[in-house]
Design a protein around this nucleic acid. Structure first.
Length: 489
DNA sequence: AGCTCTACAGAGGACAGATC
DNA sequence: GATCTGTCCTCTGTAGAGCT
């Protein structure tokens, strides 16, 4: 069996060049074989009777040669046939494999769809592990835990473990990456096997260990964790990620924002010892939940980072920025003028249309780009949870204020990057931009309290523009005029 | 030591061109 | 027209550098 093409560094599947070359080489080889076969055939025909009549001895030698050639030819044909047979078998095997893979994929999709529908479905999935797999997993994990206890750490070993872990930082990379590969695959397989073995709902066989598997890097890896820990953290992530757009884009203002969510899911799943550990104030237990929180908080970071990246590409043209134009940048950022339609003229009075907050096309573009670029994108996945602020029109959903404020904050950060030359994309840190986020939220709150209809028109209007036909068209935001906005800026 | 951010890696889906 | 193959893109997850 041929090994699958090795992927190298980089995002793209990197088998292209190698495969191309391999494909070309095969073609060249084929044509060379053909040429050789043709040449052999021709040569064979020419070595005829003329030679025989001239010199018997030569003829004998020739015949000998001929026989040799034929034998060689025959061997070649045999070899080729064997090779063809081999290739055919390989192809059949590959086909069978692809079929199995497709079946597995469709099962996975089914499971994933089920998973999206409700978290109850996840319960089924999580609890429906095949007995055999669980045993194998438990065995594997025990081995790993033993290893990590000896060489690295589990948090059950407490802080002492972390110092060991620090020593272990220099461990060979293969260890972690192979563990990652194995574990990632393992969880996917769990999903697949789960779809098949719904009947085996039995938690008694599950590995009850709730220690954190941690090899001493900055945070524990999600997929390395024991099933119970994995399940609780996974659910915590699933709850925290949408909340970034629905409720608060900067929850990590409180470093342990995921802590209550962890407790909630541990309790819901009935993991008494884990709930106890999460609620405990002991130093080792605090360390335990802090470590678990870091897994969730990284996901939140990633979402924000993506939004900032989307904005970086656009602000230059939208706001007509030049690198090092600190005067314009300062003006745009002061009082968050950039959220309003404006007219900036050098050495003249700049004007801002205060009635049209967030009525700049970049907001719609950035929301689209960051959250709704594809039917499968994050925004579409959480769209069912969007609500309406207008009690009279509950069906007219709105873009959540947190989502709009996050985009606005990312735009602020991107504009600020142009303040100094040379251009350098700054970091989108919580500490640096939390005040901007709060300022944006305050503006939205003011609109909401001052003119609910305008607030609804703004956010539902954005929703309509982005989501399209699913929503009813809504009047333009031109009547938005919030007198009280100014004193909050 | 812990936090934050970025880059990298792997898997799977989408799509276009090639081939049958 | 159906199927196959190669390539690109996106998403999820992880490692590690740099900073506090």
């Amino acid at each position: 069996m041929q090994a699958p093409p090795v992927r190298k560094k980089g995002k793209k599947a990197n088998f292209s060049e190698d495969d191309k070359r391999r494909g070309k080489a095969n073609k060249v080889k084929e044509s060379e074989d053909k040429r050789r076969a043709r040449a052999q055939g021709e040569g064979h025909g020419r070595s005829g009777e003329k030679e025989r009549s001239r010199q018997r001895s030569e003829q004998q030698a020739h015949e000998l040669e001929k026989r040799e050639k034929e034998r060689g030819k025959h061997e070649q044909v045999c070899k080729r046939r064997a090779h063809e047979e081999e290739r055919r078998e390989e192809k059949e095997k590959e086909k069978a494999k692809a079929k199995a893979k497709a079946e597995e994929r469709s099962r996975n999709q089914h499971v994933r769809k089920r998973d999206d529908k409700s978290s109850d479905a996840e319960d089924e999935r999580d609890h429906g592990r095949a007995k055999e797999q669980e045993k194998a997993k438990a065995k594997e994990r025990n081995q790993r835990t033993t290893h990590s206890r000896g060489a690295s750490s589990t948090v059950s070993a407490g802080r002492a473990g972390s110092s060991n872990a620090a020593k272990e930082r220099g461990r060979p990379k293969e260890r972690s990456s192979s563990a990652r590969k194995g574990s990632t695959r393992r969880h996917i397989d769990e999903d697949a096997s789960d779809a098949l073995s719904k009947s085996s709902d039995n938690d008694n066989d599950e590995d009850p260990c709730i220690d954190i598997i941690w090899y001493g890097s900055n945070r524990p890896n999600l997929t390395d964790q024991h099933p119970r820990v994995y399940r609780v953290v996974r659910r915590t992530i699933r709850e925290c990620e949408p909340n970034v757009c629905l409720l608060n884009a900067f929850p990590d203002e409180d470093g342990n924002f995921a802590h209550p969510v962890l407790i909630k899911h541990a309790t819901a799943l009935g993991y008494v010892d884990m709930t106890k550990k999460l609620k405990s104030n002991k130093e080792t237990d605090e360390f335990y939940h802090r470590k678990l929180c870091t897994i969730a908080s990284q996901r939140v970071n990633l979402i924000r980072g993506k939004v900032k990246k989307a904005c970086q590409r656009q602000v230059k043209t939208v706001y007509g920025l030049a690198v090092g134009d600190s005067e314009k940048v300062s003006w745009l950022l002061d009082g968050i003028a950039y959220i309003f339609p404006h007219n900036y003229q050098v050495l003249k009075n700049h004007t801002v249309v205060g009635e049209e907050a967030f009525n700049v096309p970049i907001f719609e573009d950035m929301l689209s780009d960051a959250f709704f670029s594809k039917k499968n994108s994050f925004g579409f996945r959480i769209m069912s949870r969007f609500t309406s602020s207008d009690p009279e029109k509950p069906e007219e959903k709105e873009i959540p204020a947190a989502m709009l404020a996050l985009v606005s904050t990312a735009i602020y950060a991107s504009i600020e990057d142009y303040k100094h030359a040379p251009y350098e994309a700054g970091k989108f840190e919580v500490n640096s931009y939390l005040h901007v986020y709060k300022q944006n939220i305050a503006v939205l709150d003011d609109i909401k309290t001052g003119n609910l209809k305008a607030y609804h028109a703004l956010l539902h209007g954005l929703y309509t523009c982005i989501v399209g036909d699913n929503a009813r068209p809504v009047s333009k935001k031109t009547y938005l005029n919030v007198a009280g906005m100014a004193h909050h800026q």
